[in-house]
Amino acid sequence: MTRYDFIAKYYDKLLSSLEKTTMNEFRKIFVPQIEGYTLDLAVGTGNNISYYPKNSHVVLIDKSIKMLEIAKEKAKKRNDLKLEFINSSVENMPFKDNTFDTILSIDVFCSVKNPFKSMLAVKNVLKHGGKGIFVEHGLTGDILKDFFLYITTLITYPTVGSSMIRKPLDYIQSANFKLLEYGHLKNSFYYFIVRKE
């Protein structure tokens, strides 16, 4: 069992404020941009599901079985989707190379064990010409804000495995994705739209 299995039934309540003020806003913008056969990374309790476009075919992975169980319950509200749920980490996905048209990653790379290895794994399973959509948080370049993020990480990393001080752009560049678009969203959140050439 993972640490997320132990907190799964409390997860939505714990993060309800963040969802209402921030994450739902991001999901409304970026989740509908998926196209074709899609892989949704570390889906947690499945809060992206309500924003998938009609008739989407999505594979949802998460390393927590308990989180996936909650996501499956949420999926019952959508009968216009083809969904597959797989218990897997991002680092060790059970897919062949060049499988997916789109990969969706929302608030994921703060908690993977090896972000560089994980990003390379993501690139491998994405088709040539495929699109990656990343909404991630990390260091801002502002000394005071980043100091606060470092302090926060002392609490969040040992408790829920989430680091506030990562550099998602570094992982994207290390995998040699073509960066199509990126920008600042809110607080320490950024978005990155990439393509595999």
Rank of each mutant, 00 (worst) to 15 (best):
K82D: 09
F189Y: 14
N79P: 03
S88I: 04
F148D: 00
I86T: 06
M164W: 14
I65A: 12
E69F: 04
R78W: 07
T140G: 00
N187H: 12
L81G: 05
T159V: 14
N187E: 12
T153N: 03
G161Q: 04
H184Y: 15
E181F: 05
V112C: 02
K131P: 00
L169H: 01
E91Y: 07
K96T: 11
N98G: 06
V160D: 01
E136K: 12
I143M: 13
E84D: 15
F116P: 04
A75I: 09
K77P: 06
K54I: 05
F95G: 03
S163P: 00
K96I: 03
T156W: 02
I143Q: 06
S188P: 02
L68N: 01
I133F: 05
D170Q: 09
G138I: 01
T140R: 11
F147W: 11
L104G: 11
L179W: 12
P94L: 07
I86P: 01
L154Q: 13
K54N: 10
D142Q: 10
S163M: 08
S111Y: 02
K63D: 05
L180F: 10
I103F: 03
F100L: 10
D97E: 14
F148P: 01
E91N: 08
K66P: 01
K186M: 11
I61M: 05
A71H: 06
H128M: 13
I103D: 02
C110F: 07
K54Q: 13
P115H: 13
Y157W: 09
V59F: 09
L180G: 00
L169K: 15
I106H: 06
L68F: 08
F147P: 00
I70S: 05
A71S: 13
N87E: 13
K117M: 11
R78L: 06
K167V: 12
G132H: 02
C110N: 13
Y182E: 09
E181D: 11
F189L: 04
D146R: 04
N55P: 03
K54W: 00
K72W: 04
F100V: 06
D62C: 06
A121I: 04
K82Q: 14
I86L: 14
P53Q: 04
I172Q: 08
K186I: 14
N87P: 00
K123T: 03
Y150M: 06
S163F: 09
K63A: 08
V58Y: 03
H137E: 06
I165E: 01
A175G: 08
Y182L: 11
S56I: 07
I70E: 02
L144M: 13
V125C: 14
S88F: 09
K82N: 15
H128A: 10
V125L: 11
I106F: 03
A71E: 04
N87R: 11
I61R: 06
L169D: 04
G130C: 10
V135C: 01
F147S: 08
P53D: 07
